[in-house]
Amino acid sequence: MSREDNHDRESAGTGSAARTDGGTATRTGTGVALSSRFGRGAVTLLLAVVLAFLVVPILLTLVSSFAAGATGVLPEGFVTLDNWAKVLGFADYGVQESVPGTLLFSMRLATGGMLVNLLIGVPIAYALTRYDFFARDWLNAVAILPLVPGVILGLAFVRAYPHNAGTWFGLVTGYALLKSPFMVLTVQSSFQSMDLRQLEESARSLGASWPRAFLTVIVPNAKRGIVAGSIICWTLAAAEFNFTYMVYSRGPEPFAMFLFRNITNAPFLQQAAAISVYFCIVVAAILTLQLLGNAGFTTDRD
């Protein structure tokens, strides 16, 4: 917008003149406005800069993870799998705790959080979409907006459940609460595209009890949203850091803590390999979401 704004300010004089007479075509003859000559180019250039800003560091990290050295402008010494081998625990030496162990632990935690989210997210999304009831709007806001930041929730968890906060049970509970809005929102957008009342009533008039209608007719129809929501929740929980950092003290290390230790201590190329592991997970998640019809890593449908 900033560039657009600049152009607008440059043509502010003529702009206000055009507005006073209701925007009729009085500007003919003053030459072509700056924005029609450069506007599109400038905005496209900004898009290119933003894309580069977002993508270059990711690609550089990925490329560096296959390099042998990184002292110049660009990493050098391709292609070596040493960093990956060290990080993945195949080398003789390297990080003390390898990625497979910690990643597997985090995957289990994320799966646990995702299952809890399925149990709470799908029913409440249905209730919020299908029925109208007392304080529905408030409940909707609470269910789809993450109201507690991870750091604060972690701080509160440690004091409320001193013995359980850092265990798998505490982590799963925290992840479930923190990521539940994504599940509710994705499933809700699926429900909103269906005629729920008609579906429910048809099923019931054909003799299905209400629980049966819900479980065998409505839930399967919202499959796309449920799967998309599960993927989003799972991916976000697999590398959840803020909450994990506050509650983790000992025991098996979650993946985010492994990343944290690597980013603060390990040599650059090993950090790059460790983070690239997570990039691979995200790429897989985005590809699946696109197959399901979502516009990338969002709850938004294409």
Partner: peptide
Amino acid sequence: LVAIISFPIALPGLV
């Protein structure tokens, strides 16, 4: 392009 722009949403602040 949309998928690429959405990529960082999945990244924790640490990364």
